[in-house]
Write a protein that binds this DNA or RNA. Structure first.
Lengths: 160, 160
DNA sequence: CACTTATATTTAGTCGACTAACTAATTTTT
DNA sequence: AAAAATTAGTTAGTCGACTAAATATAAGTG
């Protein structure tokens, strides 16, 4: 069955996305007891380091849209991990805080995610990790340049 | 602004997911003229190689749930890229085929995706790519083992 | 043959991610 | 001071991905 074709694939991005998908699924399994979904740890971590950030600040840091942050925070309010309070000086601004429940969940999430990270890099040396880091950043830069060229192209009247 | 902290991050998986997110966004920009969404190329490619596969077969190959395949195919039927026909021998089975429009879109998508892949790996040597492939497969295997251990744990009566 | 079990797909609901449009508050301009 | 522009967040809608339950069809059993 072609379930195994990750081992035959020449496409690195294919392997990458399969690996990331599996990782995400493992995150899900790991976090189920904490009522935390796979997309939420980055937000939890951010709030633990930046108590009371506005939604705009959160969105910028996590590179998400404001709409996504609103929806996520709303859900996390619902599970009791987060609370939002209006800024005293500016009624447009909403600031997010971890609740006690949120902090509790967070420490377990931190532990779980660290554990996962260690498992993920089993049998991979520090040197190899360093090389991979360099290559990934190169890829990121390449994609950033590519994005720029696409967006520039988009603004051209004579595009295509 | 901490938008730049990908360059400071020690977490490879963080860098990985940021890079993959950016890539996906670029795929989106590239495919907008073809009425194709970033999740659809794998399914289009599969159908071009396996004309008439059942939804179950598609789901197994792409490692998606049947529900996801149903919803995706329905959307692609709507845009006219795909048509579904019942199997003549078994009324439970639905088989998917590319339309002419789908084939047309596919060839442009193929071109675009190849172009993107080339851009992604600029300034990275063949040797480096080989190493990265090995490391990614190792990570995949690690995550696979981890998943197994989690699922085994899940079936234990005395878990946690 | 009737009933039970298995199979393939669908539907409804959840999540995160985006876009576009909207709402309310604040700042800037006239 | 009033109007216009900007800002922060929200809502509605789209996508893909999953889960659980439902539906229709086929296979197996007594």
């Amino acid at each position: 069955m072609e379930r195994q074709d990750i081992y035959e694939s020449e496409s690195l991005t294919f392997i990458l996305s399969r690996m990331m998908k599996l990782r995400r699924s493992n995150v899900h399994l790991l976090l189920r007891d904490q009522e935390v979904y796979p997309g939420q740890p980055p937000l939890l971590f951010h709030l633990s380091r930046h108590e009371g950030h506005s939604q705009k600040e959160i969105a910028q840091h996590l590179q998400l849209t404001p709409a996504t942050v609103t929806v996520m925070l709303k859900r996390m309010e619902k599970t009791g991990h987060v609370e939002r309070r209006p800024d005293p000086q500016d009624q447009r601004i909403s600031r997010a805080y971890l609740t006690d429940k949120g902090r509790e969940a967070l420490s377990e999430v931190k532990e779980a995610m660290n554990f996962l990270e260690i498992q993920c890099f089993q049998h991979i040396s520090e040197e190899e990790k360093r090389m991979m880091r360099r290559l990934l950043l190169q890829m990121y830069d390449n994609m950033k340049s590519f994005e720029q060229s696409l967006l520039t192209e988009k603004d051209q009247p004579n595009r295509k």
